[in-house]
């Protein structure tokens, strides 16, 4: 058995630090080091190491969504393996389109979701397709693209737990989050 010198870990830490300090050549938001010790508090209620976190969730739309006039129905559902807007949800999207056209400062995040069947990373792609389908629909209705963002959660954030068709139908959805 060979030794695994501690110095090797240090070397990796240094190289990571160098990476962090490099300017990005790929257009990415360059990472900053955080959580330098176990229990360090990062952004978004994230904790590295074993520390206990009291952090709050990031990206919560509660609060902003309570503004008057925003249509009440903010979730639409999809058929299995489909990203087409079902006819019964067109009126829901039309209401959001009207609101967004009339409130050019309003921003929405279209959160795309898939049911649990299939592999997780592939389902990220399926959730994104659904959210993009809603994005295109809103765009055709005259909503500015600058008001709309798309995030796919794949199967990571099911609305309903369980393996039934009923649960799956509730989980194949796009949430329109203000």
């Amino acid at each position: 058995m060979k030794f695994k010198p501690y110095a090797k870990s240090l070397a990796v830490a240094v190289s990571l630090a160098v990476m962090a300090g490099c300017s990005s050549s790929g257009g990415t938001q360059d990472g900053s080091m955080d959580g330098t010790t176990a229990g360090g508090q990062g952004q978004g209620g994230v904790t590295t190491g074993q520390g206990v976190s009291g952090g709050q969730a990031s990206g919560s739309q509660v609060g902003a969504g309570q503004r008057a006039g925003i249509p009440d129905v903010r979730t639409i559902y999809f058929d299995y393996d489909k990203d087409t807007i079902r006819p019964e949800f067109e009126s829901v999207l039309n209401e959001h389109a009207e609101y967004l056209r009339n409130h050019s400062n309003a921003q929405v995040v279209l959160q795309g979701h898939a049911d649990e069947r299939g592999t997780r990373e592939y389902n990220l792609g399926l959730g994104e397709r659904r959210a993009q389908s809603v994005e295109r629909y809103l765009s055709v209705q005259g909503v500015s693209s600058s008001q709309v963002d798309v995030v796919s959660y794949g199967e990571e954030r099911p609305a309903v737990q369980g393996h039934s068709e009923q649960a799956y139908a509730k989980n194949r959805r796009v949430v329109i989050a203000y």
């Binding site: 870990s9 990796v12 990415t28 955080d34 330098t36 190491g49």
Partner: peptide
């Protein structure tokens, strides 16, 4: 997804230090 969207990180296990490499 801690930043509100998916992003890729690399974390050193011995030190817990990490860096965001794509967002």
């Amino acid at each position: 997804f801690e930043s509100g969207n998916s992003a890729i990180y690399i974390q050193n296990l011995a030190t817990s230090q990490r860096v965001q490499v794509t967002s």
